[in-house]
Design a protein around this nucleic acid. Structure first.
Ligand SMILES: [Mn+2]
Ligand SMILES: [Mn+2]
Ligand SMILES: [Mn+2]
Ligand SMILES: [Mn+2]
Lengths: 153, 153
DNA sequence: TTGACTTTGTAGCCGATGCTACACTTTGCC
DNA sequence: GGCAAAGTGTAGCATCGGCTACAAAGTCAA
């Protein structure tokens, strides 16, 4: 087994360690992802409709109300939202803060993709996933790229 | 409920439909993600060590061997790999094809981030997540950006 | 006020992806 | 050939995030 057929075992072991860290990082991002999108959606609903209700969130996320109810329960455990039976959903200060950061990051990623020539609807779709995997350094690179406008098309 | 406090209900309903589609798209991407990274890792192991074993995959993905075994069982159900007890893991033609496409996309995303000035290790980490959320149009934009070299430091 | 409609909650199912603990097979070396 | 170590498999647990079906609560208009 592992006959290391002619190639450097050392090099591939090192590469594996790097890979493992990257994959662990992706798993961590996924663990936060839903929370980020929910608080962002809640903040937008409060801004546009005055309050965030379970049905509206279900509509926004494209899931059933049951899924929303359980997710909101988790977010409440994590002190990001406040929710009482049959009432609207509110954001805690921590939730507010996360919502603001998430919205700004979302808008940055969308704007960057648009600046690369990606169409609005596709930029929106791709950004919804990409946003959760961008380190501060990558976000900075996106912002810099847009500032130093090389006006693409 | 939904008192639509002064804002356009029509506009926010339309925005919600768009949002829902984007979130659905992200969920779909996540459903394929692990398969893509596994076949990519398997192909790399075969190239570098001659064969892909459960332990090597566990090392590469940063999970326990138990998780690898169950995931490989799923990939076999999906006809992407061939696996027999206590033997090395092989790719089916479909698995090979997916591995090649995944590797090329992975390399494109890493190269693009590098071209934006992101450091090698961070580009590798971010790309591991970003790669699964890039539409063909976005990938094309990345490739175009690198071709029309505006040599960013 | 009351009854229909809307909204929210609950029960219980599923699959995916992590884990530990333990059992079994294979491999390699003496 | 036999034994220890390494590799692989299995049992069983947990969490998360989907779902349907049904129950309960709230809202609104006649
Ligand atoms: Mn998102
Ligand atoms: Mn993702
Ligand atoms: Mn990946
Ligand atoms: Mn990858």
């Amino acid at each position: 087994m592992s006959k290391s057929s002619g190639f450097s075992s050392v090099a591939s072991r090192a590469a594996q360690a790097t890979d493992a860290a990257a994959h662990a990082s992706v798993r961590a991002a996924h663990a936060n992802e839903l929370a980020e999108d929910y608080v962002e959606a809640i903040a937008m609903l409060i801004a546009s409709r005055g309050e965030a209700r379970v049905v509206d969130l279900a509509q926004a996320m494209g899931v059933t109300h049951v899924t929303v109810v359980r997710t909101i329960a988790r977010l409440q455990r994590e002190k990001l939202v406040i929710s009482q039976p049959y009432r609207a959903i509110f954001l805690t200060p921590a939730g507010q803060s996360l919502a603001t950061r998430s919205r700004e990051r979302h808008e940055l990623v969308v704007a960057f993709l648009r600046s690369m020539g990606v169409s609005a609807s596709i930029a929106e779709r791709d950004a919804e996933g990409i946003e959760h995997h961008c380190s501060p350094q990558t976000l900075a690179a996106f912002a810099r790229s847009m500032r130093t406008r090389q006006t693409r098309k």
